[in-house]
Every structure is written in structure tokens, then in C-alpha cells.
């Protein structure tokens, strides 16, 4: 556990999609201002964990505490209004909205969000393409930047990022990594799901490994080098 106060605490989280029981008692915590990654193989339950926190699964039980308040029974819109923002794996850029409309879509839920100029500074590509084109005409990397950029405006301080590097060229992955680092410096707390272990290893303060819907291990940043062998085995990389 970190020495910082927990902004998010997940205890014995179970989640179902219809009849399938996906999470079997997930436990972890994220401290204020930390970058924490959830690692694991395909189908281990990482994405489902993020979706369960947002209230986007069929059914869930257990405890999810956000700043000390229980949110496990809230609807997704109420959870978002508390200042938790979600960037889905498929990015979720809207084809019927322009780039700028996509960026301006999520409502401001709390004061203190990044001004639009600062978001454009973080992702200069978006500024060039902000008007006219539909959001889905962007390249994959630009769509990912848009998906992250739009949740920075809202004032949410806890960001759930699902595989932000998936399918992107190495140079874009580097750019996303630099942005995430910058966001941590700005005081955002980030819960990151990653397949790309090397990307996560450079960014995150701590890592949890999920397997078959439970957290099976945890590593601090300093542990990683010494325990690389067992991690590689766990992740199958």
C-alpha cells in the first residue's frame, strides 16, 4: 500500500456480464496522485475491472470506495459526476461529431479541469484537425489523444485509461507516455490497464497483476527489476 491517502479502494469486487462471472473478488487501492497499472494476460479481467468501477457491467458486488464514499451501487452518470473519468479501450470517438465536438462533449463535473488550450498544447495534432472532420477520420493515435484529451477538461481527477497504447506506432506510444507523465505532474491520479508491460513499467508507481478475475500479485516500481523473471512468467511475455 502506498503512503498517500487512497482515492480509490476496491475490496472483494465481483462482476458479471449476464451469466458469466468475470471478477472473483478483486482487491487493490490507488493513492492520490499515483499512477497504478493493472497488468495481466488477455481475458484476465483488467478491462472488466475498469468497467465495474464505472458501473458499466451487468451486475457487481463488493466495495468500491471513492474518497471514502461507497460507489458500488451508483449509476455510471453519478459515478462520473464524482470526478472519475473513463477512457475506453475502443476509444469511443463519435463519428457523427467533429473533432472539436468530441473534445467538448463530456460535461464539466468539477472545477479545475484543464483549459482547452492546455489540452491542445498536450496534443498539438488535435488542434490542427479540430474543425470540419468527423472524429473518426483521425488516425488511431490521434483518436487516442482525443479520447484522453476530452476527459481532461471535465475536472475529473481520477482517470481510468484502458490500453491507451493498443495498436499504435512506437513513436505515438512514446508521445502518449510523455502525456501521461505530464498528467501525473499536473496532479491527476491514473489507473492504467496495459498489455504493453514495458510502457506500464516506465510510467507506473505500482503494478497489480490480475489473473482469472483476482489480483494475484503486486509490485512496486523498485521491485520490477529484481522480479522481472517471475513477472514475465505471469504475463506470458
Amino acid at each position: 500500500m502506498s503512503d498517500r491517502p487512497a482515492i480509490l479502494e476496491v475490496r472483494d469486487l465481483h462482476a458479471w456480464y449476464g451469466e458469466s462471472h468475470i471478477l472473483h473478488g478483486v482487491n487493490f487501492a490507488v493513492g492520490e496522485g499515483e499512477v497504478v497499472s493493472l497488468l495481466g494476460r488477455n481475458g484476465a479481467g483488467k478491462t472488466t475491472t475498469l468497467r465495474a468501477i464505472m458501473g458499466l457491467v451487468g451486475r457487481r458486488t463488493g466495495a468500491i470506495k471513492h474518497r471514502g464514499d461507497e460507489i458500488v451501487s451508483l449509476t455510471p452518470d453519478r459515478i462520473a459526476r464524482r470526478g472519475i473519468a473513463y477512457c475506453p479501450e475502443e476509444r469511443g470517438i463519435f463519428a457523427s461529431l467533429t473533432v472539436e465536438e468530441n473534445l467538448m462533449l463530456p460535461p464539466v463535473v468539477q472545477p479545475g479541469g484543464l483549459p482547452v488550450e492546455e489540452i491542445y498544447e498536450l496534443f498539438p495534432n488535435l488542434k490542427e484537425r479540430r474543425t470540419g472532420a468527423s472524429g473518426t477520420r483521425l488516425s488511431g493515435g490521434e483518436q487516442q489523444m482525443l479520447a484522453i484529451g476530452r476527459i481532461l477538461r471535465t475536472g475529473a481527477k481520477l482517470l481510468l485509461l484502458d490500453e491507451p497504447t493498443e495498436g499504435l506506432a512506437p513513436v505515438i506510444v512514446q508521445q502518449i507516455g510523455a502525456s501521461v507523465r505530464r498528467l501525473r505532474d499536473l496532479g491527476f491520479t491514473i489507473l492504467l490497464v496495459e498489455q504493453n508491460f514495458h510502457f506500464a513499467a516506465r510510467l507506473a508507481d505500482r503494478h497489480y497483476v490480475i489473473e482469472h478475475g483476482v489480483v494475484v500479485d503486486r509490485y512496486s516500481r523498485d521491485d520490477i527489476n529484481q522480479r522481472m523473471g517471475e513477472l514475465n512468467k505471469l504475463l506470458g511475455v
Binding site: 464505472m54 458501473g55 458499466l56 449509476t75 455510471p76 452518470d77 459515478i79 462520473a80 459526476r81 473519468a85 473513463y86 475506453p88 469511443g92 462533449l105 463530456p106 460535461p107 463535473v109 476527459i151 471535465t154
Partner: peptide
């Protein structure tokens, strides 16, 4: 679903 997860 995503729009709802933005707080709408």
C-alpha cells in the same frame, strides 16, 4: 453507455 459514463 459511454455518454452515460461521461456523467450524462
Amino acid at each position: 453507455e459511454l455518454v452515460r459514463a461521461f456523467g450524462i
